[in-house]
Write a protein that binds this DNA or RNA. Sequence first.
DNA 1: TAACATTGGTTGCATATGCAACTAATAAGA
DNA 2: TCTTATTAGTTGCATATGCAACCAATGTTA
Lengths: 154, 154
Amino acid sequence: MNNTDILVDFDKSVGRWIGSTAKMLDNYLHEAFQREGLDLSKEQMVVLKKLHENDGLIQNELAFLTLRDKSSLARLLAKMERKNYITREQDDFDKRVNRVFLTETGRITFRQTRPIIVVLKKIMEKNIKEEEIFQLINTLERIQHNISSAEAQI
Amino acid sequence: MNNTDILVDFDKSVGRWIGSTAKMLDNYLHEAFQREGLDLSKEQMVVLKKLHENDGLIQNELAFLTLRDKSSLARLLAKMERKNYITREQDDFDKRVNRVFLTETGRITFRQTRPIIVVLKKIMEKNIKEEEIFQLINTLERIQHNISSAEAQI
DNA sequence: TAACATTGGTTGCATATGCAACTAATAAGA
DNA sequence: TCTTATTAGTTGCATATGCAACCAATGTTA
């Protein structure tokens, strides 16, 4: 391994740390849901959360809010509909639009995820000062801004 | 509109920030490779990188180093073999083992990814002091440690 | 109003991923 | 040595994901 490699080493740099931490968080949540007997993926949980905050969103809005392609979201919703967590209703005024609603089952399931999230947050932030968490978020925010700006120039 | 454009608003939990930043980095790399005409996923790039550092690794080692399941890695390798980026050779002393080697094509392709990584690193760290990047990594490292410890207790 | 453009959603095709069950080869133990 | 783990890798099944092509509904414009 030569000097160039060290400078250029994505794996040992910020990107690697951000990516691997994200992966660990995903894995933790996945296992936690399973451990608690929740028939729910973390991705589906995020959808439930957005609907909990704002019921009746349309698919495109949900896709936007959950940072995924509309086709990916559509398929997530199909699975969640089969599990009776959500329903989709065609909008009366614009027949292209589907409005998505939480069912009672979905609402209950979402509530069951909350303590798991609280525990995870507590675990993550153990022995880390609040100020340091703020600083972390601040840096990530600026990194995101940097990437957005760069992409906008293309 | 691009998904990455709005990230910056809603959820303020650390986990969400880490996850969304990781997602942006993945998207950036994916698009950059495509833009440069590289027939390569970012996941495959990581494999090329590990082999570049240490040719002849066995599949399980590669899976460990790239943080994925051995089955996932096996399928990645199958695709990379079809594209003639790598070869797999059965070990003489232990016939269960496959050793994985970069081909010349794989080596060339890997080299072509390097400038893209350099640019991304430069973009990410724009207007951010080196000290702050170190701090970011340090905090992420401790978060990872916290999660590992918690999982070990289960 | 007729022709064209945009928008919301679905589907085909491709990628990546983990778990569990399985095979083949090697290691360990009685 | 023979039986019983353990290990490396593959495969089936399930999840999630993006892009592009497509349809149907709505909007725009000439």
